[in-house]
């Protein structure tokens, strides 16, 4: 194993553990929606997206149209396009073409955020980074689908916040050391709250709401502070 691959695999361990517990809930949900455990696992393996799968399985359970399913996925997962563009600015010279076509599949909120913490991202690092989370996500879904109905409610409630705990673990340390990130994060939270609780705006789907919040807050930060995150790290 090369050093970069190994470093990627090591950095992927915490994500994989988080994914394993979070995807458990997805497995439970997929079975309730009429899927077999193998189908649930296949959905997780091929999609690798939490919010998108939650919404997608809901559409499937209601026997919605394929167009509805496609539009839901497009809206909720469009943030990955922003992440792909961000990540493309950090990849090294050999991470291109077919490698991007293969490994781009692994761009998730957490994998992207951890990869983005590096100076440059090589294809072997990224491949290592995504390997265990993909396995954890798929296996967790399968086990959730098989074992879910024997779990007491408070256990599934506990697992319900695991994913958010990981998000917080990525944002808070950065906001602590960088006032600009703290500011944009507060702006994003404020807009998100406004969108959720303002009559008329609360009907906006979760995926769109996330994109609107992130774009406005990040643009505000870019105008107020410009760049320079990298100079200081």
């Amino acid at each position: 194993m090369t050093n970069k691959l190994k470093a990627g695999v090591m950095d992927g361990i915490p994500i994989a553990l988080g994914y394993f517990s979070v995807s458990f809930a997805l497995g439970i949900m997929a079975v309730e929606g009429g899927c077999t455990p193998w189908q649930a696992a296949l959905i997780s393996l091929l999609n690798l997206t939490s919010a998108g799968q939650f919404a997608g399985i809901t559409v499937m359970a209601e026997m919605g149209s394929l167009a509805e399913l496609a539009i839901t996925q497009l809206v909720i997962n469009l943030r990955y396009s922003l992440m792909a563009i961000s990540l493309s600015q950090k990849t090294d010279a050999r991470f291109k073409g077919i490698w991007r076509a293969i490994l781009g599949y692994g761009i998730t909120d957490e994998i992207f955020a951890v990869a983005y913490g590096n100076e440059t991202v090589s294809r072997s690092y990224f491949a290592g980074l995504m390997s265990l989370p993909v396995a954890g996500w798929t296996l967790g879904t399968f086990l959730g689908a098989v074992l879910g109905n024997v779990m007491p409610e408070f256990v599934t409630n506990m697992l319900g916040v695991a994913l958010y705990g990981m998000f917080i673990a990525i944002v808070v340390p950065k906001a602590k050391t960088d006032k600009r990130v703290l500011t944009v994060v507060c702006v994003a939270a404020a807009i998100s709250l406004i969108m959720k609780y303002t009559p008329g705006l609360s009907g906006v789907s979760t995926g769109f709401a996330v994109i609107i919040c992130a774009v406005i807050a990040s643009a505000a930060g870019a105008i107020m502070f410009g760049s320079g995150l990298e100079d200081e790290n």
């Binding site: 994003a188 996330v210 919040c213």
Partner: peptide, 9 residues
């Protein structure tokens, strides 16, 4: 700023 604002939202 995108990763941090996305995760927060």
């Amino acid at each position: 700023y995108i990763p941090y604002t996305v995760l927060t939202a």
